[in-house]
C-alpha cells in the first residue's frame, strides 16, 4: 500500500493509503479518544468523541481517511471540551450506576469520563428507564447502560455473520433492537459471538463472570484509557 505523510499535532507522521486519521494516529502512538470505534470493526461515527481538527475544521477521525494535505490537531482544549461534554451527555442519557456495574473499571465510557476529569454529570437527566432483558442463558442486555455506539450491531453483521442487533426508533428514542420480538434469548446470539463481548459499557454483559478482577487490577484503575497506544511510541 502507498505510504504518505501528513502533519499530526505539529509533526510529520506516516500513514498508509486508506487509513483513517484515527488509525494513522494509532500507528504513530497518538491516542485520539474514541468510544464507538473498535479496531476489528468498520467505523460507525456514532459517538463523535474522536472529533479532531483537520486544517482548522472539525472532522471525525474514525471515518475520515487521512490524506497528505492534512494538518491534524487532536489534543486541543477546545476538542477536549467537546469530548468531555459529549461523554457527560451520554451519562445523563442512560442510567449508569457504576458502583453496581459488572463493567466498572473496564468500562470505556467510565474510563473516558475519568480521563476528562468528570466528577458528576450535571445536565438534566433524561430518564429513559428501559427494562433489562435477561432472557438469554449467557448474556443480558441492559439498555440503561447503552450509549448506542452500534458496536454490537456491526460485530454481529461483520464478525458473526448474523444480524442479531440493529438500531430502531429516532432521536432520543433510538434504541438497540433485536432480531426477535421475544427477547435476546430467542435471537441467534451465541456466547462466543464477537457481539456478545464487544460492548464498551456494561450494556451487553456475559452472565456469571462479573466482578472477577479485584479493584486496582482492572483495565483503567491505574492508567488512563489510551495509555497502551501512547506507550507504543516510546
Amino acid at each position: 500500500m502507498k505510504k504518505f505523510t501528513f502533519v499530526l499535532n505539529g509533526r510529520d507522521v506516516e500513514a498508509l493509503e486508506g487509513q483513517s486519521i484515527l488509525e494513522a494516529a494509532d500507528g504513530a502512538g497518538v491516542y485520539i479518544p474514541r468510544l464507538c470505534y473498535h479496531k476489528d470493526l468498520l467505523p460507525g461515527g456514532h459517538c463523535r468523541v474522536c472529533s479532531v481538527k483537520v486544517n482548522g475544521k472539525v472532522a471525525n477521525a474514525c471515518t475520515m481517511p487521512a490524506a497528505d494535505w492534512m494538518v491534524v490537531d487532536t489534543d486541543t482544549e477546545e476538542l477536549n471540551e467537546y469530548r468531555r461534554l459529549i461523554i457527560e451527555l451520554l451519562f445523563v442519557e442512560g442510567n449508569h450506576f457504576c458502583p453496581i456495574c459488572e463493567k466498572s473499571g473496564d468500562c470505556e465510557l467510565q474510563a473516558l469520563a475519568y480521563k476528562f476529569g468528570m466528577t458528576a454529570p450535571l445536565w438534566p437527566t433524561l430518564s429513559k428507564n428501559p427494562p433489562v432483558d435477561a432472557s438469554h442463558p449467557d448474556v443480558f442486555i441492559d439498555r440503561n447502560r447503552c450509549v448506542l455506539c452500534g458496536r454490537c450491531v456491526r460485530a454481529s453483521r461483520e464478525r458473526d455473520g448474523k444480524s442479531v442487533f440493529g438500531l430502531e426508533g429516532r432521536g432520543i428514542r433510538t434504541r438497540i433492537a433485536l432480531d426477535s420480538l421475544d427477547g435476546l434469548g430467542m435471537t441467534a446470539l451465541g456466547r462466543n459471538d464477537a457481539a456478545a463481548t464487544i460492548c464498551p459499557t456494561g450494556s451487553l454483559v456475559l452472565k456469571r463472570v462479573g466482578f472477577t478482577t479485584p479493584y486496582g487490577a482492572r483495565a483503567y484503575d491505574k492508567a488512563p484509557i489510551g495509555s497502551e497506544i501512547e506507550k507504543k511510541e516510546e
Binding site: R48, E93, P124, L126, V147, G171, R173, T174
Partner: peptide, 25 residues
C-alpha cells in the same frame, strides 16, 4: 430538531433533547 434527529450520533441525539429541557427550565 430533537424529534427529527435520526439518533445516529450522540451530540445531536442527546444534545438537542438536553437543550430542550433547559429551554423549558
Amino acid at each position: 430538531f430533537a424529534e427529527e434527529s435520526c439518533g445516529w450520533c450522540a451530540p445531536c441525539r442527546v444534545g438537542t433533547e438536553v437543550l430542550l429541557r433547559m429551554l423549558d427550565e
